[in-house]
């Protein structure tokens, strides 16, 4: 475990409709450290604020107040352009509904983050092929998403999330749209990436059973961290 945490949050709050009468506060005083190589789950009921927290961790949204350091870099002062760059290089998203780009091949989908990173075509294809093999989709890389099953789509999405070797993989309900069996396969893949590749993985889920599989479970309720258990240690 490295000295500096990959994610460091201190007193992070999120408010909508800022201004007294209609103010809506989603997150209260979030303090959180996630270190390299951890497999962390964030659990909470819907409306608990866990999606907002995920958006802030993924730099898709900004906190209203408080400090968020990603790899020791403060994110508060970054403009949209710099946020895009960091998203591209440091964060690998896995969505509930896969969000693959339609009408292009699985391989092209995996290449996409590298395309925006400006990596040359030849290198992109090589790396994308490696990742596709890693997630066990080597025989289907020319298929476009409409010809893949849900589990296959999610495996392609995981390969895409790893494309630029991000600091963290941020998975938002990755098994939510899958049946138990394929959901199990996807979870096994995350375990494999964590154990064999040493990836830092943040899994957002409403399912306590899935969360129990991870090393550390952070529970959110009404915008506050109410529980943080596991090897990773307390705040």
């Amino acid at each position: 475990m490295s000295k500096n945490p990959v994610i460091h949050m201190d007193s992070v709050t999120k408010k909508y409709y800022i201004g007294e009468p209609n103010e809506l506060q989603i997150l209260f005083d979030i303090g959180l450290d996630i270190h390299e190589g951890e497999f962390v789950s964030i659990v909470g009921a819907s409306g608990s604020g866990k999606s907002t927290l995920m958006n802030i961790i993924g730099l898709l949204d900004r906190q209203t107040d408080g400090e968020y350091l990603l790899n020791g870099t403060t994110t508060k002062v970054l403009d949209d352009r710099e946020l895009s760059r960091i998203r591209n290089k440091e964060i690998g998203f896995v969505f509930q509904n896969f969000n693959l780009i339609p009408k292009i091949t699985a391989l092209k989908n995996v290449e996409m983050p590298m395309l925006y990173a400006g990596i040359p075509q030849k290198k992109r294809t090589e790396r994308a092929m490696e990742l596709i093999e890693l997630v066990g989709m080597g025989d289907r890389y020319t298929h476009d998403p409409s010809r893949l099953s849900g589990g296959q789509k999610q495996r392609v999405a995981i390969a895409r999330a790893m494309a630029n070797e991000p600091s963290i993989i941020l998975a938002d309900e990755p098994t939510g749209a899958l049946d138990t069996k394929t959901g199990r396969m996807v979870m096994d893949l995350f375990h494999k990436l964590h154990e064999e590749e040493g990836k830092t993985i943040v899994l957002i889920t409403h399912s306590p059973e899935l969360a129990a599989e991870t090393e550390r479970m952070i529970t959110i309720s009404d915008g506050r961290i109410v529980d943080d258990t596991g090897k990773g240690g307390a705040v």
């Binding site: 993924g58 898709l60 949209d80 352009r81 895009s84 760059r85 998203r87 591209n88 290089k89 998203f93 969505f95 969000n99 693959l100 780009i101 339609p102 996409m112 983050p113 925006y116 990173a117 895409r160 630029n164």
Partner: peptide, 16 residues
């Protein structure tokens, strides 16, 4: 729109 959102999440700049 969804595709645009995904591309942005993956690191596409506004000008991309």
């Amino acid at each position: 729109t969804r595709e645009i959102g995904v591309r942005k999440a993956l690191g596409a700049l506004n000008e991309d």
